[in-house]
Simulated assay, not measured.
Amino acid sequence: MKGKSIIAAAALSLFLLAGCQSENVEESFPMKVEVGDLAAVDQNGESTSLSELNKGKIVIADFIFTNCDTVCLPMTANMAKLQKKIADAGLEDEIQLVSISVDPEHDTPEVLKEYSSRYEMKDENWSFLTGYSRDEIESFANVSFKTPAAQVEGSNQFVHGTSFYLVSENGVLLKQYEGVSNPPYEEMIEDIEKLK
């Protein structure tokens, strides 16, 4: 009987230690920003929210808009490459990619569906979000991701962050990476594996 309680106590300490380790892993990342929720509609017209997509999954997010004439096309192509690398590493069930439109008035679900179809991508773990107001997305980007999301005056273009953002399963923004030219894919995969 005594042997069983020693084994149970050892198992419990290992369980508690594993919990502490995952929290300590988050502490080792440079950013620790609570990400708020964002109610949205995805490219398939389904109602969703960032917290729903984040539930039980690590999120890699970026900000885009479909009329973008500079950085969004390479960023989306790079996210498609990242999706493939995540699949090759056997991590696709643990990761949710999220591209958040900063131009919700133009970027309807239909527009986002057409835009996403230009890339070799899988809907299963990559959502393109819209369905909120411009004020909501500006505030959300500023507060939760510490990045701008504002229309350029007198233009159909928007200023927005060009990073890929790593969000833990606990909804905490931990790190950002270059999203436009030469994203550090291997570093992203390593960071994801640290959080598993």
Results as ranks from 00 to 15, higher is better:
94 E>R: 12
138 E>G: 11
97 L>P: 05
148 P>G: 11
169 E>Y: 00
98 V>H: 07
129 L>E: 01
108 T>C: 06
93 D>Y: 11
95 I>R: 07
73 L>S: 13
91 L>V: 06
153 E>V: 03
162 T>Y: 00
186 E>I: 08
127 S>P: 04
104 P>D: 09
141 A>I: 05
156 N>S: 14
116 S>T: 01
109 P>M: 05
81 K>M: 14
183 P>D: 00
162 T>F: 00
164 F>Y: 09
67 N>S: 12
168 S>L: 02
96 Q>C: 08
118 R>T: 04
160 H>I: 09
176 Q>K: 14
168 S>E: 02
99 S>H: 03
104 P>Q: 05
182 N>C: 00
91 L>G: 08
141 A>N: 04
144 S>I: 07
143 V>S: 14
141 A>D: 08
184 P>W: 11
148 P>V: 11
131 G>K: 12
61 A>Y: 10
120 E>F: 11
82 L>E: 07
101 S>D: 02
119 Y>N: 12
113 K>R: 14
84 K>C: 07
181 S>F: 12
168 S>M: 08
125 N>E: 11
151 Q>V: 10
183 P>Q: 03
107 D>A: 01
185 Y>E: 06
150 A>L: 14
135 D>Y: 09
78 N>I: 03
117 S>Y: 09
95 I>K: 11
168 S>T: 04
103 D>E: 02
122 K>A: 14
